[in-house]
């Protein structure tokens, strides 16, 4: 009985993903990893830190580290607009940190098997992610009209430690 259950879960486990745009491309993270999407995007730059760290920001009395996700993924940040947001991750993902994104998208629900391992090859025109980015992703999922790169936020902070 128990065995059957596990099999079902493996095949059909649904994942809710919070999607967002970085340099026009769609990315997503497990919604349970995100603690909050904040409109506060004015951070204090910090010198002497790794170049992927933008600085520090105060959200209701708590100081968060702002990671430069654009740089980490190999894109250029084109400057903040009214859509720019700061996604803060939960403490389970890493110590008080978040990333600046260009625009927050909707929450999509996809089954885990829909998330294709990027190592599986370039089937159906999936683009080639750099190996550095690949290390940060859980996989790629094909939505109706575009591709969604699912990130593993836990890897983000560990990147520099």
């Amino acid at each position: 009985m128990a065995k059957n259950k596990i099999v079902v879960a493996e095949n059909n486990k649904m994942k809710q993903l919070l999607t967002f745009k970085i340099a026009g491309r769609l990315f997503g993270v497990d919604i349970s990893a995100a603690r909050e999407v904040s409109p506060v995007v004015d951070y204090t730059p910090v010198f002497h830190v790794a170049e992927e760290i933008k600085g520090l920001v105060n959200i209701r009395g708590q100081i968060y580290l702002v990671l430069d996700l654009h740089k980490i993924l190999g894109y250029d940040f084109s400057g903040k607009t009214e859509d720019t947001r700061f996604i803060i991750f939960t403490e389970n993902i890493g110590e008080s940190f978040g990333v600046i994104i260009d625009k927050v998208g909707e929450v999509v629900e996809i089954s885990e098997k829909e998330i294709k391992n990027t190592h599986a090859g370039n089937e159906s025109g999936m683009e080639d992610l750099g190996s550095k980015v690949e290390a940060l992703t859980l996989g790629i999922s094909k939505l109706e009209n575009q591709l969604l790169v699912v990130l593993n936020p836990e890897k983000l902070l560990k990147n520099f430690t």
Binding site: T44, N58, G61, I63, E95
Partner: peptide, 24 residues
């Protein structure tokens, strides 16, 4: 300081200023 930045010698910590911004 965030533990990732602890090794940076020129700061001892951070604080929040009256206007809400972070200062080191």
């Amino acid at each position: 300081m965030h533990s990732i930045n602890k090794s940076i010698s020129i700061y001892t910590g951070a604080t929040i200023m009256g206007d809400g911004s972070v200062a080191l």
